[in-house]
Design a protein around this nucleic acid. Structure first.
Length: 338
DNA sequence: CGACTTTGACCCGCGC
DNA sequence: GCGCGGGTCAAAGTCG
């Protein structure tokens, strides 16, 4: 089967109202992600002076951007304050939309209620994480990560439309234990259990997308209790650098917020770092390509011999485990700054 | 022969 | 309480 992974879509296609929003809990749960969800749900809003609509992020100060200097503490606090406001605004909007959704449900028929139950559960999960006494963005992220490890995650795999199989090659061994035709989708849903380890609790459901039959939707539940048996061709839950649990959210600052759904088949991690005060300046930008070993690292630290740095980077970046670990670590660092 | 897939039956939670 | 629908079981079939 020829399959390419469409990694971590921000929204389920096509753009939709909150009723049909499916939140992939393996996704970027940062404020940027929420901005995307929110933007699609409610249209244009003012994200503040520093929000770059084209880049989908809040620009860091131009001085720091150009010179690679540290972000002033007051600027960092200002950004944090802005993000807090945005978070509050988003939750307010979510509340409004949810009320509307409830109204629609109560006035609609019963089948709609049942049909939307699961999607609503997933979406609500993420929101509940944030609503439940999370005092800071770090707390939100920590809770989101915990939730992600114990609940569900989705990947979208584009396949040949003529390919009728429900195989998602993610590096693990799966035993199929059932298949059902569900009510809301004419395509059958296949049920798999991880068969690599005897007691691995992870289950997987695979079904063609009702909107796009050329896309397989694989839903993973649980946490692998063993290492990844093979280097996966795609990012798979459980195949993180830690080899256990779900992968840390892949942080993507898309070039175009208007097309957040399907990314390229090549899983890229593009990190645009806001430097922390007091930290050395390892790189203004780091681009990590997980798929083709073409990772590039730039460093502006003149205290290290450039050649040595290049050799070390070249050596390390050939190791896919290292790149995955690096992406995860840097992703974590990003959230410490929020 | 073992591993894996298929498929009908069964279980159970949820909504009415 | 009943029916519906998703999820799981397990026996039979298939394949290498």
């Amino acid at each position: 089967m020829k399959s390419t992974l469409v990694t971590t879509p921000t929204l389920h296609p096509p753009p939709m109202d909150l009723n049909s929003v499916v939140v992939d809990t393996s996704l970027d749960l940062s404020i940027n992600s929420f901005r995307h969800h929110e933007n699609h749900c409610k249209g244009e809003i003012d994200f503040g002076d520093n929000y770059d609509r084209d880049e989908g992020r809040t620009e860091r100060p131009s001085a720091a951007k150009q010179e690679g200097t540290t972000v002033p503490l007051e600027e960092l606090n200002r950004i944090k304050s802005e993000n807090k406001k945005l978070t509050e605004m988003l939750f307010t909007m979510y509340g409004d939309l949810r009320s509307q959704m409830m109204d629609m449900k109560s006035s609609g028929n019963g089948s709609t209620t049942r049909k939307r139950k699961y999607e609503d559960y997933e979406w609500h999960n993420v929101i509940r994480i944030c609503e439940s006494s999370a005092n800071s963005d770090e707390e939100v992220y920590r809770r989101a990560q915990e939730s992600t490890r114990t609940k569900v995650s989705r990947v979208y795999v584009r396949i040949d439309p003529s390919d009728m199989s429900l195989n998602v090659k993610d590096g693990y061994h799966w035993r199929k234990y059932g298949q059902k035709v569900t009510r809301d989708n004419p395509s059958p849903r296949a049920y798999f259990k991880c068969s690599f380890a005897p007691n691995c609790p992870v289950k997987k459901k695979v079904q063609r997308s009702v909107d796009d039959p050329s896309v397989l939707v694989a839903t993973y539940e649980g946490e692998h209790n063993h290492h990844c048996p093979t280097q996966p061709k795609i990012v798979s839950p459980g195949c993180s650098s830690t080899s256990q649990g779900y992968p840390k959210p892949v942080f993507v600052l898309p070039n175009s917020p208007s097309t957040p759904v399907m990314r390229s088949p090549t899983p890229n991690v593009v990190l645009d770092l806001v430097q922390q005060p007091g930290l050395p300046n390892p790189a203004a930008k780091q681009h990590v390509r997980e798929s083709d070993n073409e990772e590039t690292f730039s460093t502006e630290d003149n205290n290290l011999p450039q050649l040595w740095v290049q050799q070390m980077a070249s050596s390390l970046t050939r190791d896919p485990n290292f790149t995955a670990a690096l992406a995860a670590a840097v992703s974590g660092r990003i959230f410490e700054t929020w």
